[in-house]
Amino acid sequence: MEFNSNFILGCSAIGAGLAVIAGIGPGVGQGIAAGHAAAAVGRNPGAKSDITSTMLLGQAVAETTGLYGLLIAIILLFVQPLVK
């Protein structure tokens, strides 16, 4: 079956929108990490710099899965592999 390229582009845009829903997971994860880091600073204010750097490292690693979704969205929108 033949599809119009505009139809494919529209579907790609919907797909890109769905792909960035992957951002929910890292968002929740980073929030939990930041909350626990805040609790840790409250318990031990002396270790603030260590806690902050550990938190940032963990958050950046947790962010990776969300970035995979973003990459899919960017590829769908700008590289357009489905349009011939």
């Binding site: 950046a60 690693v61 962010e63 990776t64 970035l67 995979y68 973003l70 990459l71 960017i74």
Partner: peptide
């Protein structure tokens, strides 16, 4: 792969 994609996607998203 994850090491390079993390850096690439972060900077690319900012640029975009």
């Amino acid at each position: 792969i994850s090491l390079s994609l993390r850096l690439f996607a972060n900077i690319l998203s900012g640029t975009a």
